Amino acid sequence: MSVRATDHGTIEMEGSCGAEDAEALLRHLLSLPGAVVDWRLCDRAHTAVIQVLLASKAQTLGPPRGEWLQRFIDDTMKASATRP
């Protein structure tokens, strides 16, 4: 699984996070309100995963490792996390 919760209350995304990881990410976000999502080791993320991140307005620890995510998604995630 490319998405996992850690013992210290963060959610880690690693490698290529496929559509099947969206449900796991949502489950972790719901069970750990206010958790930071560490996606520094994330190379790719399916749009379903990105949608969960955006909808949750989760704070991310990054930038992600993947160039496309850095270029097109990282700033959007930061802006989303600061909105009320």
Score class of each variant (00 low, 15 high):
residue 1 M to T: 12
residue 2 S to I: 10
residue 2 S to Q: 08
residue 2 S to K: 10
residue 3 V to L: 06
residue 3 V to K: 02
residue 4 R to G: 08
residue 4 R to Y: 09
residue 4 R to F: 08
residue 5 A to E: 13
residue 5 A to S: 14
residue 5 A to W: 03
residue 5 A to D: 07
residue 6 T to C: 04
residue 6 T to L: 04
residue 6 T to I: 06
residue 7 D to N: 11
residue 10 T to Q: 15
residue 11 I to L: 08
residue 12 E to N: 11
residue 12 E to M: 08
residue 13 M to Y: 02
residue 13 M to R: 03
residue 15 G to E: 01
residue 15 G to L: 01
residue 15 G to P: 04
residue 17 C to A: 09
residue 17 C to H: 03
residue 18 G to F: 13
residue 18 G to L: 13
residue 19 A to F: 12
residue 19 A to L: 11
residue 22 A to V: 09
residue 22 A to I: 12
residue 22 A to R: 08
residue 23 E to G: 13
residue 23 E to T: 15
residue 25 L to E: 01
residue 26 L to E: 09
residue 27 R to Y: 10
residue 27 R to V: 11
residue 29 L to T: 08
residue 29 L to N: 05
residue 31 S to L: 07
residue 31 S to I: 04
residue 32 L to D: 03
residue 32 L to M: 10
residue 34 G to E: 04
residue 35 A to S: 03
residue 35 A to I: 00
residue 35 A to V: 01
residue 35 A to F: 01
residue 35 A to Q: 01
residue 36 V to R: 00
residue 36 V to K: 00
residue 37 V to P: 03
residue 39 W to P: 00
residue 40 R to S: 10
residue 41 L to I: 05
residue 41 L to Y: 14
residue 41 L to C: 09
residue 41 L to Q: 14
residue 41 L to P: 06
residue 42 C to D: 04
residue 42 C to A: 10
residue 43 D to Y: 04
residue 43 D to K: 02
residue 48 A to F: 14
residue 49 V to R: 05
residue 49 V to T: 06
residue 50 I to A: 02
residue 52 V to N: 05
residue 53 L to A: 03
residue 54 L to R: 02
residue 54 L to A: 07
residue 55 A to Y: 08
residue 56 S to G: 09
residue 57 K to L: 10
residue 58 A to C: 12
residue 58 A to G: 07
residue 59 Q to R: 12
residue 59 Q to N: 14
residue 60 T to I: 11
residue 61 L to K: 07
residue 62 G to F: 01
residue 63 P to A: 10
residue 64 P to Y: 00
residue 65 R to N: 09
residue 65 R to Y: 14
residue 68 W to I: 13
residue 69 L to Y: 05
residue 69 L to N: 06
residue 70 Q to D: 08
residue 70 Q to H: 06
residue 72 F to D: 13
residue 72 F to S: 14
residue 72 F to C: 12
residue 73 I to G: 03
residue 74 D to L: 00
residue 74 D to G: 01
residue 75 D to G: 03
residue 77 M to E: 00
residue 77 M to D: 00
residue 78 K to I: 12
residue 78 K to R: 15
residue 78 K to N: 06
residue 79 A to F: 09
residue 79 A to V: 11
residue 79 A to H: 10
residue 79 A to M: 13
residue 80 S to T: 01
residue 81 A to Q: 02
residue 83 R to T: 03
residue 83 R to E: 08
residue 83 R to N: 05
residue 84 P to A: 15
residue 84 P to M: 11
residue 84 P to T: 11
residue 84 P to I: 07
